[in-house]
């Protein structure tokens, strides 16, 4: 169990969670990236940005 970086609510990771995976906070809906699993560390997942060209 860890906490949402956006609202502080508890976030439970499933047993086979992997670093880099994106999970949702069921309380505030924030998208969170799993930075580490042992111990669990979450960060707000990167948002999709707009860019030019190819």
């Amino acid at each position: 169990m860890t906490t949402c970086t956006e609202c502080g609510a508890d976030v439970a990771l499933h047993d086979d969670a992997e670093a880099g995976e994106i999970v949702d906070c069921t309380t505030c809906g924030a998208e969170l990236e799993v930075i580490d699993v042992s111990p669990p560390v979450l960060e707000k997942a990167p948002e999709l940005e707009e860019d030019w060209g190819e």
Partner: peptide, 15 residues
Amino acid sequence: RAAGGSPSLLRKTGT
């Protein structure tokens, strides 16, 4: 992240 970066995600206006 392993290479020391902070990943970002892009969508591009080109093709």
